[in-house]
Amino acid sequence: MSAILEIFAAIPYDQVLIQTVNGIVTGMILALVASGLTLIFGIMDVVNFAHGELFMLGAYIGVVVLATTGSFWLALLIATLIVALLGAALQIVTLRPLLGRDPLTTILATFGVSLVLQNYALWQFGPVARKIQEPITGSFQLLYLEYPWYRLLIAALSAAIIGALWLFLKFGTWGIWIRAATQDRVMAQAMGIPVPWVHTGVFAIGAGMAAASGVLFGPLVGVTHAMGLDWVLKAFIVVVVGGMGNLGGSIAAAVFISLLEAYASIWVSPAQAVIVSFVVLILTLLIRPTGLFVPTPK
């Protein structure tokens, strides 16, 4: 009995509280990235390998717009719009010709896109990390830490964007088209829904969401050309753990995994904490390959 009490006494509760807040903040960003990825997958059967690069490009455009206009919110808006347009163009040029072919070819094509975008960013912006200035600088007292308000703002904004996406899917005309195309592509086409344009639109939305999360996350870490890969890997894990193409599951899985990683980094270095999410993935594959956060298929 006393041994159990000792274990509980050994947990640093103050750090656990701080890491809980941290985990929720990164979890919401991750949810924003992953929901774009899962939306694209659920509707088009396309695994967008270039998603991390769209995230990175969004952050860079944010840097440029912020430098010229000085307004963070304008940077967020413009980066989202530009990357959404770029996403639409990419979908038309590289993915539309592959419609009806083996879904594996779409991985190859988007992998090529990610190579081009990543090296373009390296060429255009150089290897030195850029910084985005956060729009609000205040902080509050969280135990012994000065915790910046901006982090909480990110979480709230991500939740707001995901909520808006959900409302759009539920009630918007395009949202209804998107859901129809997910359920039955051929039938949707037969009912007069312009399915190819729905695909383009979905890719644009996913790209825009990636870019928005890139700009939001920019102030926390430096903006570099290689920042995309970490995120796309984590987003892949989230999407598999949450159940492919399942929006709610992805969000739950994103917060779940981020919390676990945050707790793990109390004891090991952040680089090794990544292993935790890998272990979650392996356990998911072993126990429930359909995803942890989906109802059991009947």
Partner: peptide, 20 residues
Amino acid sequence: RLRDIYFAITTLIFSQIFYV
């Protein structure tokens, strides 16, 4: 245990495990 895209992603993640 997984097919197609899922296989591709899990192999990618496994290689990252060993990288880390």
